[in-house]
Design a protein around this nucleic acid. Structure first.
Lengths: 215, 215, 215, 215
DNA sequence: AATGAATGAGCCTTCATTCAT
DNA sequence: TATGAATGAAGGCTCATTCAT
């Protein structure tokens, strides 16, 4: 995944999957949109701010995307696709349920390192997409929920997790805990490494509970 | 309601302080603002939508608050003040750390029953307040964090919770888990009762971990 | 003419001529309007500012005048009526043309002492009156011009003033010089006494010119 | 045109500096603003009226200036800059004090021929500028006053003018007389030529007084 | 690949005014 | 004599978007 930390980037051709544009410049434009949407919210952001970040004129943006709304959809898409991919890979692999949860937690936090803006926009702004694209995007997030819930269910069935854990609610709790990090990560000095470790511990404990002792 | 600039409007518009507010109408206006802000986001909301909800003309809103921004601040204030109050009361009460955490979880979810809009606005829109009011509001939320962290720290010290729990991170995790509920509560059919019970279980397990067995 | 220097006044029943209201309070309300109009201009002034100055509510103003526009007309009227009266008295009196000009200058500057606001509003804001009242008011000012022009013309005819003085233009010049004082009087520390003396000298010299020597 | 706030509008809108301005359109827009401000006063004027005069949509104005207030400042600036320049040139030239006064009077009235709107706006509306720009503009007008006062003082010292003339007050009187012309010039049928001649005569006589005979 | 010029739609806000009390 | 509540009309300004170049 290309480094998006800097405002401007250079080589390492962005591996954009869908039609986000095959050109390098398209990636930069989307990065700028993601940053501005993340900072001001979709409705609070102006195309002018995006253009400023890129050093081009406002009108020039429309060479890259047909509307602000579509830019939002593209950003949201980028923000969630990989999550699902990675979650599915982990879930369908081998290992105990606890190990899978640990891997899922780590994988879920990782993108905050270099695509934090995309993640934030997906989390907070997808709600403002028009119905059609919202549905399109919702599929991915529901997919993630389903994958996690399945792992938890499996852990319960196998006796790894507490029998009274509700997989659906536990999934939402877990995701809430993880997604909230995006809101404060970067303002705190704690490293993603530390956070991941702590959150893995909390998650496993929460699910395994008293019986976890024997693990 | 904060005074307008001295040269402006001596009209003593109805004052709405904490609680239900002396003047019923002011409360209704704020409720409408909260609802619209919650639904569309601060920047996506229009004062026209608020007025429509009340069946009054848009200009009439300005009899009750001097600006959309101040309305946001008032809503945010309402959305957080009580949290802090309740948290402090619980924390300074008697009982084990686990019991306090359980009570805190329940207390934190409770407002979703009848002031969900205020809570949502506080969580998602306070970031768009002007610096001054954001700081004012931040005090309350930092207060809540500190109260919870103190309870967790105490639990660790007393041996109730896992020794390797980081109170600060655990607090953020717990709040993330709880606050996320506001995003989906109402769309799911699960009752607050069920959610609370499950989340109490998860929280205690997460903190107490394997050692919790003896509890 | 009642003292209007202070923001609030007391006795000395205002000798309002026209229908401005026979009550004392009416005078105070008009004083406030004059002050606010003078300070902010008619269009820049708000009824709220007038109300603030009086310590009453905006709506209460409408007990005293039916509209902002009428208030302006009343203020303008007060600002000019006396001028004409006094000018006519002086012109129809006895004395040389020069003596009359001297008296006219003094009389014209005098009102700046305690009805400066009314004068300023008349000078600068009467142009914004609706056609009908503007015409009504214009009569008075044209009257003043005519009176002065007549005195000058007489002075020329009598040989007191330079033969090449154009009475109409000289009148406009004189009035321009005098009226401009209202713009800076009060910001300068010079007393009206000093100003009057100097301006009498300038006016007489301008009109009498080289021949004035023998006077 | 002053830069907009950094975060705003990188659009390099046409800049109009002194003189005709590089971009013709900017000049036309400012002319329209000057005319409307002159006619209705700053507060009484609407941006719609300016747009109507130009045959463009109201929103389009904001492509040329960032606010009505800035438009006022630009107009005021145009209205006064040249005055000062010309006055200084005349004062620092050669000739008797009387000759200089004559030249100053003529130069002061000249702009009424083709930039009357700018002059009127400067004279009557600059008071409504925000503090910062008012100060900026005040420098020019104070400069003009100082130049004239110096010439008068010099004339007194040289014995050309009456010894009892107060340079400061005489300057204010002279400027009042001259500036007042802007209020009625165009409504009267008198030519600027006639007015100038008459006003030169009045001014010289006023200052030189009885002794002027020998000139 | 980008931009200068312009615009339509809409938004927040102000303000004079009304009216029942 | 005054006011609380409300409103209609408008005003300045913003902003996404278009289009010829």
């Amino acid at each position: 995944m290309p480094d998006r930390a800097a405002t401007q980037q250079t080589n390492k051709a962005p591996v954009r999957r869908k039609g986000a544009g095959r050109h390098r410049r398209s990636g930069e434009i989307l990065d700028a949109a993601a940053r501005v949407f993340a900072q001001h919210g979709y409705h609070g952001a102006t195309t002018q701010q995006i253009a400023d970040l890129l050093g081009i004129r406002q009108a020039s943006l429309y060479y890259y995307f047909p509307s602000k709304e579509v830019a939002l959809e593209l950003v949201c898409m980028q923000g969630v696709e990989d999550f699902h991919e990675r979650a599915r890979a982990i879930a369908s692999g081998t290992g105990s349920a606890a190990e899978k949860i640990a891997a899922l937690v780590r994988a879920h936090l990782m993108p905050l390192l270099d695509t934090a803006d995309y993640v934030r926009v997906f989390l907070n702004e997808r709600q403002y997409l028009p119905h059609a694209s919202r549905r399109r995007i919702a599929k991915w997030s529901r997919g993630i929920e389903r994958v996690i819930a399945a792992v938890i269910k499996d852990g319960v069935r196998r006796g790894e997790f507490r029998p009274d854990v509700d997989p659906r609610l536990a999934t939402l709790a877990l995701l809430g805990m993880l997604n909230a990090v995006s809101a404060w990560y970067g303002k705190e000095s704690t490293s993603l490494e530390r956070i991941s470790a702590e959150y893995v511990g909390l998650a496993i404990s929460a699910l395994a509970g008293p019986k976890a002792r024997g693990r």
